[in-house]
């Protein structure tokens, strides 16, 4: 009889997603119904009568399970958010494209190559800032159900965001390196030495990356 009551309740949850909330509700219902069943027996009812009393007392469980079926999956981006994000990315790309022109313009037209390089760096910095801001403010995947699948989706979404930030920063880094190379080469005219900048830049880049990864693995521990 106990198993029959348990089965009756479990069947009502058959087509409900197996979330933590649903499992707890099921557990709660079973515990309470079994206690009622035992009480009925103690009052001198037969097992058959007690079972009938418990089952008829449950009522229509669909009103309870219906609420558990609603799923809200992705937190959808609103059109305004998408527009804002597009404006940010477009501005950043424009700044990247314009940045080398600053060098040309200032050194050829105004004959102030230092200002030209400074302008280029400023443009690159602003553009990178915009891209990072865009990636950081993107709506994150919000977890609506406590299942493994949801956890995986959340992890994937976090990973993709990390990667986007990393790629943005690293492309800006290399642009800056190229800028430094050109600037030093043009001012010193020591082209046969200056290529070493790229090797140094690669080394610095990898060291920074290693430090970041090391910190990250420390945090997750």
């Amino acid at each position: 009889m106990v198993a029959k009551i348990r089965n009756y309740i479990q069947r009502a949850f058959d087509d409900v997603p197996k979330t933590k909330k649903a499992m707890e509700l099921q557990e709660e219902l079973i515990a309470n119904c079994l206690e009622k069943f035992n009480d009925q027996l103690r009052f001198g009812k037969s097992e058959e009568e007690a079972y009938t009393a418990v089952i008829s007392g449950i009522g229509d469980l669909s009103e309870l399970t219906e609420g558990l079926k609603e799923r809200h999956t992705l937190s959808v981006e609103t059109p305004e958010q998408r527009k804002k994000s597009a404006v940010l990315v477009a501005t950043a790309v424009m700044l990247y494209i314009l940045s080398p022109m600053m060098v040309v313009f200032f050194s050829e037209v105004v004959n102030q190559s230092v200002i030209g390089v400074l302008m280029m760096f400023t443009f690159v910095a602003i553009a990178t800032g915009l891209l990072v801001y865009n990636a950081m403010t993107k709506s994150r995947y919000r977890r609506e159900e406590d299942t493994l699948v949801e956890e995986f989706k959340e992890w994937k979404s976090a990973k993709a965001k990390d990667r986007a930030i990393f790629e943005t920063v690293s492309s800006a880094y290399w642009l800056i390196v190229v800028g430094i190379y050109l600037f030093i080469s043009f001012t010193t005219l020591a082209w046969h030495y200056t290529w070493i900048i790229f090797i140094i830049a690669a080394a610095i880049g990898n060291i920074v990356k290693a430090i970041l990864l090391w910190r990250q693995s420390d945090e997750t521990k």
């Binding site: 509700l25 709660e28 219902l29 007392g57 449950i58 009522g59 229509d60 469980l61 309870l64 609420g67």
Partner: peptide, 13 residues
Amino acid sequence: FELKEATLYSAFR
């Protein structure tokens, strides 16, 4: 009077 389980737990939620 007795509440149906379904009614009771819906109210809890």
